[in-house]
């Protein structure tokens, strides 16, 4: 009922924590058995270790939050020798999110990390709004995005999903260019660029000034974009943006997503992913669906 098959991913259920909201799983493994999850999108990995941005790195907003972590991660070698081996104890396929400042960085990480035995797919992060070089610069221009996708596809041993930025005028044209470049799937959406200003200091709260908006506040934007892109491409979409419960998951599936990632909600309730998985069969039944697959794209099919 809950199974979904996607390129590289044989998912027991369609729920996975989104990259950046789950670290490399260690902390959440103290709360529950990670084998319950459909997949895990691990924190973005770059060639070298990165410290990220100065603090404050987060600020709450109405129904959401801004973050500007800045891709902090221990670097490719540590991820390969410590983080991925730690995750091998769980029966869960890993989607490795990869990032970089230049094309070469992405290619190097993709080549190495895609050889790890529990990495079943890559998620190409061309949409992080919080780093000065790379990140979103690769995701807002269709030609640049397509070229990078093509190069990563050449070296990757596993299917490549590309994470789209919502900070664009026409997301469909970028999605189509990435599909044409050979991507196996899309993940969407990354955070929306935003800012908050402290009335007392009269300065932006985040040290980075701007940050990525996430949480339930952005869900309607994500639903609209998944709905547009799903009808324009033939590759599967993993949808994300403000998912808090099983009803939200169904909304993304109806919009055209084939699986759903949960991000910010992990910070609100560490048990949110297993709770959603548990609630899914009853929720599907309540709205008259026999399975997850039965629900995908239901709003336009």
């Amino acid at each position: 009922m809950l199974q979904v098959k996607l390129p590289g991913l044989d998912l027991k259920n369609p729920i996975m924590p989104a990259s950046g909201c789950f670290g490399f799983g260690r902390e959440f493994a103290e709360y529950y058995d990670l084998s319950l999850l459909g997949s895990i999108m691990i924190k973005a990995t770059t060639v070298s270790p990165r410290f990220g941005n100065p603090t404050p790195r987060v600020a709450e907003t109405y129904g959401g939050m801004l973050n500007a972590i800045g891709l902090q991660n221990p670097g490719l070698d540590v991820v390969l020798t410590q983080e991925l081996p730690f995750l091998e104890q769980f029966d869960v396929p890993i989607i490795a999110n990869i990032a970089g400042s230049e094309e070469e960085d992405y290619i190097r990480v993709a080549e190495k990390i895609s050889q790890s035995k529990n990495v079943h797919a890559l998620e190409l992060n061309i949409s992080c709004p919080n780093v000065k070089h790379g990140g979103i610069a690769f995701g807002t221009d269709a030609v640049v995005a397509a070229r990078l996708t093509e190069k990563v596809k050449k070296v990757s041993q596993v299917p490549v999903y590309v994470k789209l930025s919502p900070n664009v005028t026409d997301i469909v044209s970028i999605a189509k260019a990435i599909e044409a470049a050979g991507a196996d799937g899309l993940t969407m959406i990354n955070t929306l660029l935003g800012m908050r200003i402290d009335l007392r200091t009269r300065k932006p709260i985040l040290a980075n000034q701007t940050g990525g908006l996430s949480g339930p506040a952005i869900k309607p934007v994500a639903i609209r974009m998944v709905h547009e892109v799903a009808q324009a491409v033939h590759i599967p979409i993993i949808g994300m943006g403000g998912v808090q419960n099983a009803e939200d998951v169904l909304e993304f599936l109806l919009a055209g997503a084939s699986a759903v990632a949960v991000g910010t909600a992990n910070f609100v309730d560490p048990y949110v992913c297993p709770k959603i998985i548990e609630a899914l069969p009853e929720t599907l039944h309540k709205y008259g669906f026999a399975s997850i697959v039965d629900c995908i794209g239901g709003s336009f099919k």
């Binding site: 909201c21 670290g23 959440f28 603090t55 973050n67 972590i69 910010t264 910070f267 560490p270």
Partner: peptide
């Protein structure tokens, strides 16, 4: 944010 070491906000 998370309070449990996963989000890297308070580093």
């Amino acid at each position: 944010a998370c309070g449990m070491g996963a989000c890297y906000a308070c580093v």
